[in-house]
Write a protein that binds this DNA or RNA. Structure first.
Lengths: 218, 218
DNA sequence: GGTTCAATCTTTGCGGTGATAAGTTCATGT
DNA sequence: ACATGAACTTATCACCGCAAAGATTGAACC
């Protein structure tokens, strides 16, 4: 009796433990939240000792960083897919609005993961170079979309300015929504939210608004 | 010796323990980060048993919630002070830009606290009604500024739309900056950051190709 | 075949954490 | 004076990240 391991001997070496840990971690991240995500719980769920995980991730922070990296890659892909699927070459504002929508829907579909991607203070591994790279590439994708929609070269100052504005807005909106801090009805669709916010910008910056002091055309 | 307590007997009852715990928690929050903020460490620093804190806060989440509540009240006050100090009744865009600046500077001055305010998943107490109230009031302040600058009634749809847009943008920009994810030079001033972002919106929403008023490289 | 070896996974254990239970001190009202 | 209750104490528990050292396995070499 007292065979220490409840598992059959055939599974001492799991083989794909790393992938399975990541998958379980990602799932558990969304269910229990980042704070309660523990290596012990993940390992236990996979029927494996907790320490086994430390042979695939140097520590908890590294696990979280890899999850976040994966998130940025998925976000980038979502932006790519969405943009080339829609094809709104004519209306640059509509095209940008559509990118914002894809962004918001990614965040809503993976709220905890999204939060992790932008909350390094929770405990990410800053020395993970793949993380920084993935994040920059995702931002680069947004810049590409903006550059294309504005018909400007990627390096232009206009594109950098618009990218900062767009990323700030998209990230802010997504963040407010997944934290349920917006004062709008809970069930409001992502389309409506983005539409509402864009209309708000129209009021402030658009020609329908009150003229500012320096007006270029009149 | 072996007096269990190193403190003089006169200080069994601290008296203002609750305030001192909050102050120490806030300080420690910025130094060690929200994840590493422990009740034990806070209490120890005050020369008090860890359990003493539990007589003032039902649990760790309640402590964090009260910190966040305090943060929203300070943010609201910062918006008020800034707006009535500046007085830019004429240019509504400039006025909004100034509110964004105050917002960003608050976040930069209290990065960990700011993160806590918008990261309930880290472990806030959702049942804390003061927290929700403070947050709504801070948002209400922003709405008031926008309503005044747009010369619209507070309940108008325009104001709600512009408020969602403005809060999303301000929060997103602040969040990106304090997490150091913006691709701009680290030391960039808050003024420049807000200015840059607003120019970006001009490019997207403004009338055809508004030239930037300030000529400076970014 | 047997032996070695490195990778993988195990048990064991340390120190720190949130939280509860039960006891101690003290200020205050009657 | 003394009862009451709030403020604080010392256990103690379960869980966590993480490190050390040992066990299991497959593959590679002879």
């Amino acid at each position: 009796m007292t065979k220490p391991s409840a598992r059959k001997r055939t599974s001492y070496h799991v083989g794909n433990l790393s992938e399975r840990l990541m998958a379980e971690a990602r799932s558990m991240l969304e269910t229990v939240g980042p704070a309660k995500l523990s290596i012990r719980a993940i390992s236990e769920k996979l029927g494996v000792s907790a320490t086994a995980a430390y042979h695939h991730f140097s520590n908890r922070a590294a696990l979280l960083s890899r999850l976040a990296t994966l998130g940025f890659r998925e976000l980038q892909q979502a932006l790519i897919d969405n943009d080339q699927q829609i094809e709104l070459q004519g209306d640059h504002r509509k095209r940008l609005q559509n990118a914002s929508l894809a962004y918001l829907e990614f965040a809503r579909a993976n709220p905890a993961l999204y939060q992790l991607m932008f909350g390094p203070e929770i405990g990410l591994d800053a020395s993970d170079e793949g993380f920084e790279k993935a994040r920059l590439e995702a931002f680069g994708e947004l810049q590409k979309i903006i550059a294309a929609s504005l018909n400007e070269p990627l390096e232009s100052r206009t594109v950098r300015q618009a990218s900062l504005a767009a990323w700030s807005h998209s990230h802010g909106l997504a963040s407010l929504v997944i934290h349920k801090v917006v004062g709008f009805p809970e069930g409001m669709s992502s389309e409506r939210l983005v539409e509402t916010s864009f209309q708000g910008f129209e009021h402030v910056f658009g020609r329908s608004g009150v003229p500012s002091l320096r007006v270029s055309d009149d």
